[in-house]
């Protein structure tokens, strides 16, 4: 396993006088992994994410993306082609007046020849289920569709990593599922490393690994089972455990013998059903 992103003792503040927004962050993202960075608003998630594709460059500490140190300014464009990013507000990241033009935007910037660009654009559109919307204008799309356009634009660049900075937080539940299932698919079928940034604990369940950020420091790191089932730890960093976890813990307090690490609806139901024969 190679590492796609490596952050080493990163400190960051926006101005000389401002307080540190990031404190001694060290992390590694393995290739093909799905990492979630979880934290409440203002904990520094977006700031951290922008180091991954050299939108921010460290003064203190080191960030290596896809094997390239982000301090080299002449590598930034190259890094951004490998570490694509989808942002929170679907309206503020679509640049071009039609879907296909927007998907092509990154490829145009990269100077990809027309024939190849054409093929890649339509392949990406196809992959994200946007067939038939090629010439549609962005303002006519639903939130979920807009974020899929942004994903298609990212995918067209054939990146190694896609970073989603709260990309689902402005969507309705349908749009959220729409986007997350696409992300899941891209990871499986294209073997793209996924980093999702979120304050939504239920979304964090999908990850292989979670890093909890609190006031700019890494508070916890672990699997969703470990992190999300610990109500107290989550409360300390200003987050609430998923509803199912809260319910399972409450049941346990009421002497119902449930196993540890119940995260989803299905798991809770199965565990409860297993209880039946005993009573």
């Amino acid at each position: 396993m190679t590492n796609d992103i490596h952050v080493d003792h990163l400190y960051f503040r926006y101005h000389e006088q401002a307080p540190y927004v990031l404190h001694d962050i060290s992390l590694t993202v393995k290739q093909g992994e799905w990492l979630t960075i979880l934290g409440h608003n203002g904990s520094g998630k977006s700031t951290l994410a922008r180091f991954f594709n050299a939108l921010h460059v460290p003064k203190e500490g080191k960030v290596i993306s896809c094997g390239i140190d982000t301090k080299h300014a002449n590598e930034w464009v190259n890094i951004r082609r490998q570490v694509a990013m989808v942002f929170q507000n679907p309206d503020n990241q679509i640049v071009a007046p039609t879907v296909e033009d927007d998907v092509a935007f990154g490829l145009e910037n990269a100077g990809i020849p027309y024939e190849e660009m054409h093929e890649r654009v339509y392949r990406s559109i196809e992959r994200l289920g946007l067939r038939g919307l090629e010439t549609q204008e962005p303002h006519r799309l639903s939130g979920g569709q807009k974020q899929r356009v942004a994903l298609a634009g990212a995918l067209a660049l054939r990146p190694k990593v896609i970073v989603l900075d709260e990309a689902t937080s402005m969507l309705d539940p349908t749009g959220r599922i729409e986007v997350l299932s696409m992300v899941e698919k891209l990871r499986k079928e294209e073997n793209i490393t996924i980093i999702t940034i979120t304050h939504d604990v239920t979304e964090a369940m999908l990850a292989d690994r979670i890093i909890v950020l609190h006031e700019g420091s890494m508070a916890y790191e672990g699997t969703p089972d470990e992190i999300l089932s610990d109500e107290n730890a989550l409360r300390k960093v200003g987050l609430r455990a998923p509803f199912i976890v809260q319910m399972a813990n409450e049941l346990k307090r009421q002497q119902v013998p449930l196993p540890n690490g119940v995260l989803s609806h299905e798991e809770l139901v199965t565990s409860l059903c297993k209880l039946k024969p005993i009573t």
Binding site: R81, A84, F87, N109
Partner: peptide, 27 residues
């Protein structure tokens, strides 16, 4: 203004660096 700032960051993240060496999707 918020939009403009977001858009500028999004464009930068997508490797926009001016017209030099850019190809065109619309032919």
């Amino acid at each position: 203004f918020k939009r403009a700032e977001d858009l500028a960051i999004a464009m930068e993240a997508r490797g926009y660096g001016g017209g030099e060496g850019r190809t065109k999707f619309r032919q």
